[in-house]
């Protein structure tokens, strides 16, 4: 090896050992290794080191863990914890909220003032709110570009589908942008589906759906599909009841401007 040979950095050798180098770069280094004993030795050391670390860390894993980690039991725990959360809901802080079996039911609360700075979530998931075992399409890996470019994920909608409770549904939406709008359609599906721009946080339980987003991240509409079979649905905007659906009736209140768009009811804040 002459003195002017450029040896790969330790980081590059580590990346090679970890199989994380681009093929062209890996090939370059492989060519170098053929002629360089020092680097070959260092690579061997790094491999040996990684193996030793993995082995040492294994000591931290209790051999009894496989018995502890009964996923079914953990799953039950998780469901129980969610029930617990539902049993002790935070008191609604928004006017127009009505609760209870006899009361109304789909409330879309657009409380712009209630916005907190939610970091955007690029998770593009469709959960069934009623049974976590029934995700419609858990997450999309379809756009790898999203992993480096947050802007893409930002615009991808998030959504969920949830069952009614006794034919009724509570949906809250908070912190919609001033120029945001809601499109509501009736469908033959059994549950309510909602889709909102990424950055929206969903809180769900059977018969209840709450969406919280931040104004600056809301790009595009919130789309909601309501089942025709629902007994009663109430839409509340800015803490006020905006619209109510029953199988025979739709009542739109004065807080929103409503028009129709491609068969959907489009609701905006009343200017």
């Amino acid at each position: 090896m002459n003195d002017r040979t450029i040896h790969p950095s330790e980081g590059s050798l580590q990346a090679l050992a970890d199989g994380e180098l681009e093929p062209a770069r890996a090939a370059d280094i492989q060519r170098h290794l053929v002629e360089c004993e020092d680097c070959t030795r260092r690579l061997d050391q790094l491999r040996e080191l990684a193996g030793a670390v993995t082995e040492a860390l294994g000591h931290l894993d209790d051999p009894g863990d496989t018995e502890r980690w009964v996923p079914d039991r953990a799953w039950d725990n998780i469901r129980a914890r969610r029930q617990d959360v539902r049993a002790h809901p935070r008191p609604p802080a928004v006017r127009g909220w009505r609760q209870g079996a006899a009361a109304a039911v789909v409330a879309l609360l657009l409380a712009a003032g209630a916005a907190t700075a939610l970091p955007w979530s690029p998770l593009r998931t469709w959960f069934s709110g009623s049974d976590p075992g029934e995700v419609l399409a858990p997450l999309s890996d379809a756009s790898p570009a999203a992993s480096t470019d947050g802007a893409l994920a930002r615009t991808d909608p998030v959504g969920l589908t949830m069952d009614l409770r006794d034919g009724e549904m509570d949906v809250e939406v908070e912190a919609l942008a001033d120029d945001g709008w809601i499109e509501v359609r009736r469908t033959d599906a059994a549950g309510v589906s909602a889709e909102a721009p990424a950055g929206t946080a969903f809180h769900s339980a059977p018969g209840r759906l709450r969406m919280v987003g931040t104004g600056e991240l809301h790009q595009g509409p919130i789309r909601i599909a309501l089942p025709r079979s629902g007994r009663r649905t109430v839409l509340t905007i800015d803490g006020q009841v905006a619209a109510e659906w029953t199988p025979t009736e739709l009542v739109v209140h004065g807080v929103v401007a409503a028009d129709s768009l491609d068969g959907a009811l489009r609701l905006r804040r009343q200017p």
Binding site: R68, W69, A74, N77, I78, R81, R82, V85, L118, P119, W120, S121, P122, L123, T125, F127, G129, P132, P138, L139, D141, A146, S147, G150, A153, L160, A201, F202, H203, S204
Partner: peptide, 24 residues
């Protein structure tokens, strides 16, 4: 450890999703 992991799943299921990671 188990408690924290379960809490993470509860948050996920509740849609209380905050964070910057790209994948589930």
């Amino acid at each position: 450890a188990e408690d924290v992991v379960q809490e993470a799943f509860v948050r996920l299921l509740d849609g209380d999703v905050r964070g910057e990671s790209q994948r589930l």
